[in-house]
Computed example of a mutant assay.
Amino acid sequence: MKKVLMLVLSGLAVSIAASAWAEGGNAEAGKTKSATCAACHGADGNSVNPEWPKLAGQHPSYILKQLMNFKNDERVNPSMTPMAKPLSDADMADLAAYFSSQVAKAGEADQSKVTLGEQIYKGGNNATGVAACAACHGPNGAGNPAANFPAINGQHAAYTKLQLNAFRKGERANDAGKMMRNIAAGMTDAEIEAVAEYIAGLQK
């Protein structure tokens, strides 16, 4: 229990630092610096490839934390890690400020899967101990910037599915207190797919 508490407090400290840096970011400078990001994430942060995340409208502190994690090898991805390595603190803050200032385009859900997705998102699965997504990410998926829980509404279903599977397998481990790993570990393939589709259709 003590170890979990320390992990959560450590994550909170990183979140506070990220928030402070992100608030000092310059969106105009970030727009210029985002040219290399546009190939994957789109010029306005709305990626075309569904396996690459939309960054538009995301909380700046969350974007900054992910960039910091890629730079420090706390989150590893063959495409993002080398992109983040040369970034300075100012670069990361500026990019976070720019992408957070953009407007996310609405997503579209597979309606045949949203019933189960809504059930898990709003109520979890008591039988398997899977917590409701809404508890941290909010009823409409807007997230909680104070706790550094990301906005997920309208995110590509394919990307969300990839991340939930990565958490479930332990391939992604930059979640405070193993919160996402513990939740994803109890989810079935069908639940992950359904939740991902439901999230894609959520709007602010």
Rank of each mutant, 00 (worst) to 15 (best):
M1K: 14
K3F: 14
K3W: 10
V4T: 15
V4W: 12
L5N: 15
M6Q: 05
L7T: 11
L9V: 08
S10P: 09
L12E: 14
L12C: 13
S15D: 07
S15M: 04
A17W: 11
A18H: 03
A18K: 05
A18G: 08
W21I: 10
E23Q: 13
G24P: 09
G24S: 12
N26W: 14
N26S: 13
A27W: 04
E28T: 12
A29P: 10
G30D: 09
K31Y: 15
K33I: 11
A35P: 03
T36G: 09
T36E: 15
C37P: 02
A39I: 15
A39S: 15
A43C: 12
D44N: 08
G45H: 00
G45I: 01
N46Y: 08
S47T: 00
V48Y: 02
V48K: 05
N49E: 03
N49A: 02
P53M: 10
P53L: 13
P53Q: 10
Q58P: 06
Q58Y: 07
P60I: 02
S61K: 01
Y62R: 10
Y62C: 11
I63K: 05
L64Q: 03
N69F: 09
N72S: 10
N72T: 11
V76K: 15
V76Q: 15
P82M: 02
M83Y: 10
P86A: 11
L87A: 09
S88R: 13
D89L: 13
D89P: 05
D89E: 13
A90G: 07
A90R: 13
A90V: 13
A93F: 01
A96W: 01
F99V: 00
F99H: 00
S101Q: 14
Q102K: 07
Q102F: 12
Q102Y: 11
V103P: 07
V103W: 13
A106E: 13
E108R: 15
D110M: 04
D110R: 04
Q111K: 08
K113N: 02
K113Q: 05
T115I: 02
G117F: 00
E118M: 09
I120V: 03
N125M: 04
N125G: 08
N126D: 12
A127R: 14
T128E: 14
T128N: 05
V130Y: 06
V130C: 04
A132C: 11
A134G: 05
A135E: 11
C136R: 04
C136E: 08
H137S: 07
P139S: 12
P139F: 06
N140Y: 08
A142F: 05
G143S: 11
N144T: 04
A146W: 06
A146S: 14
A147K: 06
A147G: 04
N148A: 05
I152F: 03
N153T: 12
A158N: 02
A158W: 01
Y159L: 07
Y159A: 11
L164R: 04
N165W: 00
A166P: 13
F167N: 01
R168K: 11
G170A: 07
E171C: 01
E171K: 02
E171G: 00
E171T: 06
R172A: 00
R172T: 03
N174V: 00
A176G: 10
G177T: 12
M179L: 15
R181V: 04
I183W: 06
A184P: 10
A185Q: 10
A185F: 09
G186Q: 05
A190W: 03
E191H: 06
E191F: 05
E191K: 03
A194V: 04
A196V: 09
Y198R: 03
Y198M: 02
A200H: 10
A200P: 09
L202Q: 00
K204L: 09
K204S: 15
